[in-house]
Amino acid sequence: MNFNHQELIELTRLGPHAVVGKALTEFTKPFDNTMVVCADSIKLTNLYDFQEQFPDKIVNVGIAEQNMLGIAAGLASEGFNVFAPGYASFLSARSFEMLKSSISYMNLNVKVLGLLSGFANNTMGNTHYCNDDLAITRTIPNLTVISPADGVALYTLIEQLKEFNGPCYIRVTGGIGSQLVYKDDPKLEIGKGKILQEGDKIAIIACGSMVYEASRLCRGLKKYNLSPTLIDLHTIKPLDEELLHNICQNHRLIVTIEEHYVQGGLGSAIAEFRAKLKNAPHQLMLGAKNTYYPGGTYPYMLKVHELTSQNFLEKILQTIQELEL
């Protein structure tokens, strides 16, 4: 794929969600079956160019996320491939039933993009933070759940989703100042985890914004002569069981890292898989604390919830000591 890498870096600095408008505009053709439905979220999604180029392919329903997903389902039932971007918090928890009954039960072609998930909503506070959307969406049959690591991954994923059949929830984390994990097209395959580094003993499995943090963590662990395997598990549902099987066989400690409550997210999904194994390795589950702390800036919230590479490093070293690995 050809893309202007510098432009993507700049957009990602605004937060990975900023690439959504660009990707949708670039990958849409005048006579294709794409439709975009949003809820007063043209500005949030940076859809101005899209709106100008394809005024008949975008519907703004106002501040009404439930209606938005119902309309998206109706359009999809008539053959459209519908992208539905908006605040993650309101497209998952608030509209859970529409995701379930209107979209997934009827197995319709709607791609719900939950933007500014995790703590990316900065100082907006706990109503806008979204650390439960993986837990919510993971329970819904037919729904594919993806959490891309950065703006490049999200950009290339949107191109893939133009051809992907069936309902998806795409969880977009990362905020202002986000770094890129991928310097080039990562050629992600939906449903297949991506090994970023092969190592031994410890396997670190992360998704979304925490993949970059996990790569910093790996650099930190090097100083302790530890060389872990690092995996970007962008598809949380369906799980790449083949990869996980190999990883569990060849490592003694699995570390899962996510900007999401430990309850119900990536770590839980892997724990559910591990529960089926004989002689499963130990798992250290790292994620947001299940507490409503007062709000603050994105970096502040990550610190409060102990979601930095330094926090992870300390916990891993402690676990290694405790388990005598």
Binding site: G70, G74, L75, A76, E78
Partner: peptide
Amino acid sequence: LSFAIGKALAF
């Protein structure tokens, strides 16, 4: 009704 709106827009 929301589902019907989607169909109407499609038509």
